[in-house]
Amino acid sequence: MAFNVSIFSHSKYSFEGKREHEEVEIFLYSHWIIMALKVLFYAILAFLPLIPLLIFAQTLINFEVIIYVPFFLLFYYMMLWSLFFYEVMIYLLDTWIVTNERILDIVQKNFFYRTVSELDLTRVQDITVNTGGFIQTIFDFGDVEIQSAGAQNKFRFRQVPHPNMVKDRIMKLVTEAKKDIVQP
């Protein structure tokens, strides 16, 4: 039995609760620009301690405390690295999965707060795309709202790339799913 354990090769999207004959049609994260803004923020924080260090370098040498600087600097970078990857974790675990049978909205709010919502494709009533503002228009990302038949709240895909293409694809899947019910 051969199996591929490489994390650098492409693999099919497998998730907890995936059914045997279920195929993932759409898999979405938020648009990359959301993460890019956070990267920029953390990059600024990373350069921030270097400014006073350069300004007060001579003073630190004179008072013979320069040997403590690498320790505190590295400690600061360790904490920053952890905080940054906490943001990366939240970004990567906030996903929307559309299969040939259902829609899954997975929200990771913090370490120990995770919500998984599911909607059968046959219960989809209508889909709305909201793209607001200059940045969203230029980079083609926005919200996709899915209204279901019933008292359930709307499903909202937040700040996803190519929302109109996503909407069209989901509508096509919904049509196919409803056709299967009428003509099994």
Binding site: S9, S11, Y13, S14, E16, M89, L92, L93, I106, R114
Partner: peptide, 9 residues
């Protein structure tokens, strides 16, 4: 969290 709940590579 990344390994347990992450989907894809």
């Amino acid at each position: 969290h990344l390994i347990r709940f992450g989907v894809g590579t």
